[in-house]
Design a protein around this nucleic acid. Structure first.
Length: 421
DNA sequence: CTATAACTCTCAA
DNA sequence: CTAACGTTGAGAGTTATAG
């Protein structure tokens, strides 16, 4: 088994640079929703020591000093660029698993082992030329190893130039290399596990690979044991060609300004439910339960804190925005307590089932007519999200998120294409 | 008691 | 000028609850 993992470099920043080459060579970050945290950093910013996920306001001094440019995230643009990148990469293998917006696995079986690096370099070159995004490629016998190889490719370790194939290295070379990689770089090893592993003297990828599998399972979990085996080249995770349907669908968001009143929370919750229900219908599912939650800002110690959620089973599984929204608003009314500054709300759809083989309900008095929802989805797809919506969503929306530094929708909206004279 | 539901924690991008 | 800290999903493990 041979896997390749292709990952866009600083993906969101690279997307922005495709359409604004002046961003090349200068420190750029892309911010999360609400312009809250740093979610993508250019190489220049990484070199300044800025960590992933840092709140933007904490960087103001550093940003001024080094002229860091911050952009609001433009997910429409990134999703479109991702689609282009994925379709180019998809031509390099019959098996592709799109793992996230900026990375995918490819199955590289059946190709001559000696040619894989060349193959990888061709992919990089073509993606750069056709889509404009720089990518790196990791190649190895398991998914976990290919992720690690990708890390090496990005860092230029072991003499890699954008492509790293562990299959070309011998045991000693791999030993040396793994001994220099911190265990936290391994896929599936996060901050918590890094701490606990360190207590056992396991600090590098090599330490974890050579640890006793049974001990790892007993002290940690079967998940970490699988990771360990994968580091040894024993493949425990298959390439998932077809994306399975989601088991839960959620939509949550921080507000651009604190919200205090029930009606305003209701508008937000209705809007989130409309989005969640769209996703639900797209994958042809029905929801059997709805969860709603609201909370104050846990980072603001001056405000009194309140956070609560409620799960409501539905009498009958449905994908009807009206019914789902009614349930959510009913739950919200039970949760709501006046006198708090709410900062975030969200909805979740649970107990999902297949819409094409609906479960019968002896007590269901009526079947719903999906035509209205179909029309709504089509109109919103053609004319833009939110063109047609329930009155419950409101029109004022003072709580809407901040996006003060957004780039135009270059690829999906003619009106926002820059003029060339 | 067991089986399941509900909830918490961790991780990833 | 001020105040300001993301979203979505999976899965394991634990605890609560039902029968």
């Amino acid at each position: 088994m041979t896997f390749a993992l292709i990952d866009g470099n600083n993906f969101y920043v690279s997307c922005e640079r495709v359409f604004n080459p002046q961003l090349e060579g200068i420190p750029v970050v892309v911010l999360s929703n609400n312009d809250g945290c740093v979610v993508a950093r250019s190489g220049e910013v990484k070199a300044l020591g800025v960590k992933m996920g840092v709140p933007w306001f904490q960087l103001k001094d550093l940003a001024r000093k080094h002229g860091i440019l911050a952009l609001s995230s433009n997910y429409t643009l990134y999703a479109d660029m991702s689609n282009r990148m994925m379709s180019v990469l998809g031509t390099y293998s019959p098996q592709q698993e799109i793992y996230s917006i900026d990375e995918c696995f490819l199955g590289f079986d059946g190709l001559p082992a000696a040619d894989l690096v060349t193959h990888g370099q061709r992919m990089r070159q073509q993606v750069k030329q056709w889509v404009g995004i720089p990518v790196c490629v990791g190649i190895a016998a398991t998914k976990t190893l290919s992720k690690l190889a990708n890390h090496c490719a990005k860092k230029g370790l072991a003499g890699a130039d954008g492509v790293c194939d562990f299959g070309q290295m011998n045991a000693e070379e791999l030993d040396t290399l793994f001994g220099r990689i911190e265990v936290g770089e391994v896929w599936g090893v996060g901050r918590r596990l890094t701490e606990r592993l360190a207590a056992l003297g396991i600090t590098t990828a090599r330490d974890l690979r050579d640890a006793d599998a049974r001990t790892i399972r007993d002290n940690f979990s079967v998940v970490l044991e699988r990771t360990l085996l994968e580091l040894r080249g024993i493949s425990c995770m298959a390439l998932e060609d077809v994306a399975p349907k989601k088991q839960q669908i959620m939509c949550l968001r921080s507000f651009g300004a604190y919200v205090h009143s029930l009606p305003e929370l209701g508008e937000a919750v209705s809007g989130y439910m409309a989005r969640a229900a769209e996703k639900l219908r797209r994958q042809q599912s029905l929801a059997g339960a709805v969860q709603v939650f609201i909370r104050t800002n846990p980072f603001n110690p001056k405000h009194p804190q309140y956070q609560r959620g409620i799960t409501l089973p539905l009498p009958e599984s449905t994908s009807d925005t009206l019914r789902l929204t009614r349930a959510a608003l009913w739950g919200l009314k039970r949760l709501y307590k006046p006198g708090y500054a709410y900062q975030k709300a969200g909805v979740m759809l649970l107990n999902l089932s297949d819409a094409r083989t609906p479960q019968g309900n002896l007590f269901a008095g009526h079947r719903e007519n999906p035509a209205l929802m179909q029309v709504m989805d089509r109109i919103n797809q053609q004319w833009g999200r939110g063109t047609l919506k329930l009155a419950a969503e409101g029109v004022g929306q003072a709580w809407k998120m901040r996006r003060e530094r957004m780039s135009p929708a270059y690829t999906t909206n003619w009106k926002e294409l820059p003029r060339v004279n």
